[in-house]
């Protein structure tokens, strides 16, 4: 594939210009002769929001480094099909070619998610309790059941250890409202609806500093 092709695919139509304009980091279209493969797309397109190596700096954009490969594939496909929607991500995913998806997923899955540090330690402490035990009264299952110790994830259940708190909280609210509905078995929608605002914020805060041991 020629470099001009890749530029064409991500050229600013379909509202993409608007999105490019609102992104605080901004990025320019690739003007070099780099090969138009997953690494080029990662280094020229994804990097703008998801940062170098898939560890985004802006906490409303998710870290995608170290996510389960199958999970990344599913999300990209869902963005393309409309099963998951995002003003920012939907047009980007739409510009991908189907054959880009697997190598992109493999690339980001092989990176390491770098944890941050919880700001509110008290909230993180409460969040840890919810993560490990859930809430027996309201029927919130413990997050650890699917997302595993240290939030490393398992198969279809994504890594969440080390993820940005605002992104996690936002997703949980979208699950609760049904704005995000591409969860397996409707599990996350059911769980998010049972969680209090405090539980959601606290778990999100706990996840920030969670690292693989």
């Amino acid at each position: 594939m020629k470099d001009s092709d890749i530029r064409h695919r991500f050229k600013p139509d379909n509202g993409f210009l608007k999105i490019a304009a609102i992104m605080t980091m901004g990025w320019t279209f690739p003007g070099t002769s780099a090969a138009a493969d997953a690494h080029t797309i990662a280094a020229t397109v994804c990097i703008a929001c998801h940062g170098d190596d898939g560890n985004s700096v802006i906490p409303t954009f998710p870290k995608i480094a170290g996510l389960q490969e199958g999970y990344i594939v599913k999300q990209l496909r869902d963005f393309r099909s409309g099963a998951r929607t995002s003003e920012v991500m939907s047009p980007v995913a739409a510009a991908l070619k189907p054959e880009d998806i697997a190598p992109l997923a493999a690339y980001y899955s092989s990176r390491k998610m770098k944890p941050g540090e919880a700001v509110d330690r008290e909230a993180a402490g409460f969040g840890k309790m919810v993560y490990l035990d859930g809430n027996e009264e309201s029927g919130v299952p413990a997050c650890i059941g699917c997302h595993q110790a240290q939030g490393v994830g398992y198969l279809i259940y994504p890594r969440i250890g080390g993820q940005h708190a605002p992104y996690v909280a936002h997703q949980m609210k979208d699950f609760a409202s049904g704005d995000r509905s591409n969860d397996f078995g409707r599990f996350m929608r059911a769980i998010a609806r049972r969680m209090t605002e405090e539980e959601i914020q606290s778990v999100a805060e706990y996840l920030v500093g969670l690292d693989e041991r």
Partner: peptide, 9 residues
């Protein structure tokens, strides 16, 4: 796996 959240690992 999804049952583990309540019934434990």
């Amino acid at each position: 796996v999804p049952c583990q959240g309540c019934h434990r690992k």
